[in-house]
Design a protein around this nucleic acid. Structure first.
Length: 515
RNA sequence: GGCUCUUUGGUCAAGCGGCUAAGACGCCGCCCUCUCACGGCGGAAACACGAGUUCGAUUCUCGUAAGAGUCACCA
């Protein structure tokens, strides 16, 4: 059996978005799942639309995702060059062969003539179709025109009747009437081929067995078959994929959204998670497992799992999946990735063990790396906060109790050199709980105020004692004293501590109604 | 407008003539708990519509509707 070969054939006309990446991924997976080759070919036959830098985005994206190509620019195989603009003579030759075979013809129609045709067609409300003016030009006229150096294109000569049927691996058999097929241009007047022609020639010459692409090409596929047949070439397996949508009506595009691969990376998503998620958009595995590494996908991928209908990109599910990847990650690896985000909030350089401790708290609490800074900012600088934070009904705390607790904690901490020596979360926890018991308080009546005083925020990654350990003995006492100052009306900050808006209920009341 | 494709919960989706129509995200509730997460348990939520074919249709056929693609010297 022939070796499976697929190709990713981007044109350097824009940025690589998630849809392109998924196509590349499917092409890669089809090849690898069958022990085949995956090639990269650059389709730059439209010199006017070339965008500087677009190629680098393609290379960088493939590199970042681990989608390696076996042949392509920079990895010459037997079918090079892999950049279409460097293959122009090849296309011309094959176009002329087609003319000889009677499957194509020279067309000398001017742009003006075509334009007027187009406008009259549009007036009728139908789509444009070339009127085949040059289709049956006598040979001598053609020769004379060519001799005169008249500009020309080469058009495909479509059969006028009958039908053409092609088979798509995901959509099944599709049949169209030949009379609906336009005599499309194969070779442009600048001597370069159109996409449709270059594609067929290159796919054949490069031994491509599976043509994988977006289903916007579904309707031009019959023309491909006719071309393959005219050449007498073997028709490849077609695999058309439904698009990835931004919403019900709009395709994902760089223009409308921000779903380019590197945009997601900037937002703190992991390449593996992105790849895993987009693979599932339009393909489903045989079992219920959703998590796949690239090598696992290479084994599990099947064309039959590709779906026919468009899929809406759901950032929430990606976010969840990214969070799962983070949680399942080796802590050392996480620390490595998290470090730059952690360092964003600390002006000074942190020792490794402190980074590790912060990571320990944060790893199960973020879904993207970008969430890290806001979660830990309070470690670097205590924010200004309202005393309302001290009131929590379920924790049975209010400002009064909190003040009392914080004073107890400060005094106990200062009187205990042992705890300063062993300032770890479990030890502090034990210490504070004992303190609560001695004073007839519930644990929460100590722990909640402490956590509040240490963080100044409503929700923190980790409990009071986790925060204390990371802040250290001295800073813990400093922040507790700051809390005491706030609660006793001697605000440490610029602003006087704002009283709980339910102060009347708080004072002497067992429960504060505020929180 | 012609041609082509698509249609299962809000989203991704399994299903390939007979099922109480999987699973996942999201959402809601409960549990765990020094807050928040993680984790555990549970819940609400779907076959676009109409005709056939069949003993029996989510599944096959044909219509209808709604979406999408395409109709370039762009890819």
């Amino acid at each position: 059996m022939k070796k499976t070969r697929t190709r990713f054939a981007p044109s350097p006309t824009g940025y690589m978005h998630i849809g392109n990446l998924r196509t590349a991924l499917y092409e890669y997976l089809i090849a690898k799942s069958q022990g085949g080759d995956f090639l990269l070919r650059i389709e730059d036959t439209d010199q006017e639309r070339y965008v500087e830098g677009a190629l680098d985005v393609v290379f960088n994206t493939l590199k970042a995702t681990g989608i390696d190509y076996d042949e392509g620019p920079g990895k010459e195989g037997d079918c090079g060059p892999y950049i279409q603009s460097q293959r122009r003579d090849i296309y011309k030759k094959y176009a002329e062969i087609l003319v000889e075979k009677g499957a194509a013809y020279y067309c000398f129609c001017t742009k003006e003539r075509l334009d007027s045709l187009k406008t009259s067609d549009e007036a009728l409300g139908t789509g444009f179709n070339y009127d085949r003016h040059c289709r049956d030009l006598p040979k001598d006229v053609v020769a004379a025109n060519l001799a005169m150096g008249l500009p020309y294109v080469i058009r495909q000569k479509m059969p006028l009747e009958g039908t053409t049927t092609f088979t798509d691996a995901v959509y099944g058999d599709i049949t169209v009437e030949n009379k609906t097929l336009d005599d499309q241009v194969l070779l442009k007047s600048d001597g370069l081929p159109t996409y449709n022609f270059a594609n067929v020639v290159d796919d054949h010459l490069m031994g491509i067995t599976h043509v994988v692409r977006g289903n916007e090409y579904l309707s031009s596929t019959p023309k491909y078959n006719l071309l393959y047949e005219a050449f007498g070439w073997e028709i490849p397996v077609y695999v058309h994929c439904a698009p990835i949508m931004k919403d019900e009506h709009h395709k994902l595009s760089k223009r409308n959204g921000d779903a380019s691969f590197f945009d997601l990376i900037d937002k703190g998503y992991l390449p593996e998670a992105i790849l895993n998620y987009i693979c599932l958009l339009g393909w489903s595995p045989s079992g219920n497992e959703e998590f796949f590494t690239l090598p696992e996908l290479e084994k599990a991928f099947t064309i039959s799992g590709i779906s026919k209908s468009p899929a809406i990109f759901d950032i929430d599910k990606l976010t969840w999946m990214n969070g799962e990847y983070i949680r399942r990650m080796d802590p050392a690896k996480f620390a490595e990735l998290a470090r730059p985000y952690i360092e964003r909030v600390f002006p000074e350089k942190l020792p490794d063990d402190k980074i590790a401790r912060i990571c320990g708290l944060v790893q199960t609490r973020v879904s993207t790396l970008a969430e890290i800074p806001s979660k830990i900012a309070f470690f670097a600088a205590l924010p200004d906060y309202s005393n309302e934070l001290y009131c929590h009904k379920k924790m049975k705390t209010d400002e009064e109790i909190s003040l009392k607790s914080l004073v107890l904690v400060r005094d106990a901490l200062k009187k205990s050199p042992e705890i300063a020596e062993n300032f770890t979360s479990p030890a502090i926890y034990e210490f504070l709980c004992a303190l609560a018991a001695e004073n007839g308080l519930k644990n929460s009546q100590i722990l909640w105020p402490v956590r509040t005083a240490l963080s100044g925020v409503e929700a923190t990654p980790g409990g009071a004692t986790d925060l204390a350990e990371i802040l250290g003995y001295d800073e813990t006492i400093r922040r507790v004293e700051d809390g005491i100052a706030r609660l006793s009306g001697r605000s440490s900050g610029e602003q006087p501590a704002t009283p709980c808006e339910n102060a009347a209920n708080c004072v002497y009341a067992p429960f504060c109604q505020g929180k």
